[in-house]
Each structure stands twice: as structure tokens, then as C-alpha cells.
């Protein structure tokens, strides 16, 4: 899939989707992602269990993440190549937003 198509289909990511994807740069399971996101955002973002499950099953179906292992009722996921590309596109989109804000506000 080319860049244009990926951008049109997936961007902008929701805040939860963004944090799920960046957390899966390392293999993690659902609850592990919830804890990690809570930690790195100092409690600002709490992803609920239902939102977590919804994101994981949608992203798996879309091939953005892939299951790498399963241990006692826990599915462990990791970012796929496609997921990595989408995440990189989103990060450059966010960088552009941030840079525009800084330039326009004279910082």
C-alpha cells in the first residue's frame, strides 16, 4: 500500500490508538500496554479494558500489529511493518502540526 492510501485510511490516529502503537514497538500484552501508557503519561491517559481490546482486535485485523505469542489467556502483540509505517507517518504529521504551531506562535 502506498503512503497516500495509508494516510487516508489510518490518519489521524486516536490518542488511544497512537499510544497502543508506540507501546508495541516492544512486544506487550493488552494489560501491559495499559500500564505502560499510564506510566509514560504520568496517569494522564488511562486506556480502558474495552477500548484496549477493541483497538487490539481492530489493529490485528488491519495487520498493523501481529500476535507473537500467547501465554495464559494473554495474547502478546508487536508492531508489524505496516504498523510501523503508519506510526512513522503519524509522527511526521504530528511533528508538522507542532512545528507550525511553534512558528506561528513565534516560539
Amino acid at each position: 500500500m502506498d503512503t497516500k492510501k495509508l494516510q487516508k485510511k489510518y490518519l489521524p490516529l486516536t490518542e488511544s490508538a497512537y499510544y497502543v502503537l508506540i507501546s508495541l514497538n516492544k512486544p506487550r500484552h493488552g494489560y501491559g500496554i495499559m500500564q505502560h501508557v499510564n506510566e509514560i503519561t504520568a496517569g494522564r491517559i488511562n486506556i480502558g479494558a474495552g477500548t484496549m481490546y477493541g483497538n487490539l482486535s481492530r489493529m490485528e485485523k488491519e495487520g498493523l500489529i501481529s500476535p507473537v505469542a500467547e501465554e495464559d489467556r494473554k495474547k502478546i502483540y508487536e508492531l508489524s511493518e505496516k504498523g510501523k509505517t503508519v506510526l512513522e507517518l503519524e509522527i511526521s504529521r504530528l511533528e508538522e502540526l507542532l512545528n507550525h504551531g511553534k512558528t506561528e506562535m513565534g516560539k
Binding site: 500484552h29 494489560y31 495499559m34 480502558g48 481490546y53 487490539l56 489467556r73 495474547k75
Partner: peptide, 13 residues
């Protein structure tokens, strides 16, 4: 239609 990991995520939380 949910898998085992559905219950896992909720219960761990």
C-alpha cells in the same frame, strides 16, 4: 464472539 484474551485483559484490570 471474543477470544480468551478478552477476559484476560478485563480481569487483569
Amino acid at each position: 464472539n471474543v477470544g480468551d484474551d478478552y477476559y484476560g485483559i478485563f480481569q487483569e484490570d
